[in-house]
Every structure is written in structure tokens, then in C-alpha cells.
């Protein structure tokens, strides 16, 4: 093993662990910002960790009708999100793991998680599970094309579908205004809200029967399974934010093999995550949850913006 490879592996392990460990903190931060904006007294930022610890210590209750799929799913979800966190350049672009999947495969990883989640939700045969699963699949199939279009825009600009290449190209270009990237950024934000069950599409804190989507899917889970799912949801949010940073705010991510740039990368990541979390909370306070049938319009708008971004890239290239 050459030193360069060793450093790469070390950075890969560092980044993967960092994302998984920091994810609940980001969720906590979003919750705090939301509480502040809504004039409530804020919970502790460590609350998601306490919740996870509490859930891990409880005994799991599983329905008699549940198949092995139901037990496997939390681990699959967690694994998929961890994999995604290992592929997206968060701290460094030099990740030995990253060539395993480009942005298209990354969307596929998220899709695997979604399919397993939906199957497990329908597995126990409760009505809420089926309802949540159907809604989730509807949102997923509308959000996925929009997501791909957004990613293609960035891929066309940097002539690569590898996230690390995209980050390196975009971070080291001369400053220019890219109308196509602006469109893609708005589309990506809309997809992020939809995919992470955030407010205009789904309310992450509700347990109201008629409106819940994500919560309806995981109603049957308890204890360590629930903890893993909650954790996976937190990692998913951070992974999506990291994709957004990689495409639209790629500055501050350390280049390959540059350990000296690492503290700077840490600081940049912390600042970006704090800002993104506050922004997310702000958006969620500002917007109202929409009717489920309006989600079609919301996501077709995202798709439209993604396609327009791509078209405009071809039109005004030079």
C-alpha cells in the first residue's frame, strides 16, 4: 500500500464516520432553529442522540405477521445512507470509495432505500403502512427525474458524472455566472425538501393520520429498528445537503492528498451545514404543508427547472 493510498483510505474512513456521527447533530440544529423561529423554547441540540440512545436500550416489538424483510430493512436503510455518505465528497475529494458509484448510481442507492422502506411498510399489512408507502413511491417517482436532471446539468458543465470530478472542476474554475446552475440549484432544493420529507411535502413531526407520509411508513417500528431508521433519515439529510454543497457551493473541500487543507475543510463544512440547517428551518417555518395532490405540481416544477437549466447550458455555453 502506497502512502497516497493509505492517506486516501484514512480520509475515507474519517469522512464516513464523521457524516454518520454528525448527522443527528444537524437534525438537532434544524429542530433548534425551527423552535426559535416559532417562538418555542428550543430543545437541547443533543436531543437526537439521547433519543437514539434511549431507543437502542429498549426491547424491539415486532408484529407476528412481519416477514424477515421487515427486520432487515432498517439495516438496509442505514447501510444505503452510509454508503451514500461515503461517496459524496464532504471533506475531501480524494475518496478511494467514490469511483464505485457516480451520481446516477447514487440516485440508485437512494432508490434502493426507498423501495425497501416501502416494502417493509406494506409488510405488516397495516393500513397506514400501505398508505404511507404508496404516497412515498408517488413522491419518489416524481422527484427522481427532477433530481437526475439537476445532476445532469452539473455533469454537462464539468463533463463528468463523477461527483469528485464535478467538485474539482466547479471549485477551480474562473468565476462566471451560470444561469443553468442557478436553475438546477432551485430544482435541487425542491427535490431535497420532497425527498427528506420536509415541510411543503411532508411534515417530519406530525402523526396526523391523513397527512403523514414518512411517519406512516415507520409506525410499526420500535426500539433499535426505529433508532436505525431515524439515524438513516438524519444521514440522508446530511448526504443531500452534501450533494448540494458539492454541486453549488464546492469551495472549501480539500483537494486530493492535502492534509493541511483539512482544518479549513472542517470549518467550511461546519459553516455550510449550520447555514443550510438554519435555511431549512426558515423555509419550513415560512411554508405551509401542501395538499398531497399539489405535490405533483411542486415536483413537476422542479423537473421543469432542471430541464430548463440543462437546455440553457447548451444555449448560452459560449
Amino acid at each position: 500500500m502506497t502512502p497516497a493510498m493509505a492517506s486516501g483510505v484514512a480520509l475515507q474512513v474519517l469522512q464516513s464516520l464523521l457524516v454518520v456521527l454528525v448527522a443527528p447533530l444537524v437534525t438537532g440544529w434544524v429542530n433548534i432553529c425551527r423552535a426559535w423561529l416559532q417562538n418555542r423554547s428550543a430543545p437541547s441540540i443533543w436531543l437526537p442522540y439521547y433519543t437514539l440512545a434511549k431507543l437502542f436500550h429498549k426491547d424491539a416489538v415486532i408484529a407476528n405477521t412481519a416477514s424477515p424483510l421487515f427486520r432487515i430493512t432498517p439495516y438496509v436503510l442505514f447501510g444505503c445512507m452510509w454508503l451514500a455518505a461515503g461517496i459524496v465528497p464532504v471533506l475531501v475529494t480524494d475518496l478511494p470509495f467514490a469511483p464505485a458509484a457516480d451520481i446516477i448510481a447514487l440516485v440508485g442507492v437512494f432508490a434502493v432505500a426507498r423501495v425497501f422502506g416501502a416494502l417493509a411498510a406494506m409488510d405488516t399489512g397495516t393500513s397506514f403502512g400501505g398508505l404511507g408507502a404508496r404516497r412515498e413511491m408517488m413522491i419518489g417517482f416524481l422527484a427522481e427525474p427532477a433530481m437526475l436532471m439537476t445532476l445532469f446539468t452539473a455533469a454537462f458543465i464539468s463533463d463528468s458524472t463523477q461527483l469528485q470530478t464535478i467538485v474539482e472542476t466547479l471549485a477551480h474554475r474562473e468565476f462566471a455566472i451560470y444561469p443553468s446552475l442557478a436553475f438546477a440549484a432551485v430544482a435541487f432544493l425542491m427535490v431535497l425538501l420532497a425527498e427528506n420529507a420536509r415541510i411543503p411535502v411532508d411534515n417530519p413531526t406530525t402523526h396526523l393520520e391523513l397527512t403523514m407520509i414518512h411517519e406512516a411508513m415507520i409506525l410499526e417500528y420500535s426500539a433499535r429498528h426505529l433508532a436505525l431508521i431515524e439515524w438513516a433519515v438524519a444521514i440522508k439529510l446530511v448526504a443531500y445537503m452534501a450533494i448540494g454543497f458539492a454541486l453549488f457551493l464546492p469551495w472549501g473541500i480539500a483537494p486530493a492528498g492535502d492534509w493541511a487543507a483539512l482544518p479549513m475543510a472542517f470549518a467550511a463544512l461546519g459553516a455550510k451545514l449550520a447555514l443550510a440547517g438554519a435555511g431549512l428551518a426558515f423555509l419550513e417555518t415560512l411554508l405551509a404543508k401542501m395538499r398531497i395532490f399539489l405535490v405533483t405540481e411542486f415536483l413537476s416544477t422542479a423537473f421543469l427547472l432542471g430541464v430548463l437549466g440543462m437546455l440553457i447550458h447548451f444555449l448560452v455555453r459560449g
Binding site: E174, S180, A182, L308, I312, V316, G318
Partner: peptide, 19 residues
């Protein structure tokens, strides 16, 4: 990609117009 700033802004505004 050597566009002048003014034509970049015009492109941005054109994109805005389309939007």
C-alpha cells in the same frame, strides 16, 4: 468560457425571462 461580464448578466436575465 471567456464571456464578458455584461454578456453573462444578459444571459442570466434571459434565463430569468424564460423562467
Amino acid at each position: 468560457m471567456a464571456l464578458s461580464l455584461s454578456s453573462q448578466i444578459v444571459n442570466l436575465l434571459a434565463a430569468l425571462l424564460l423562467l
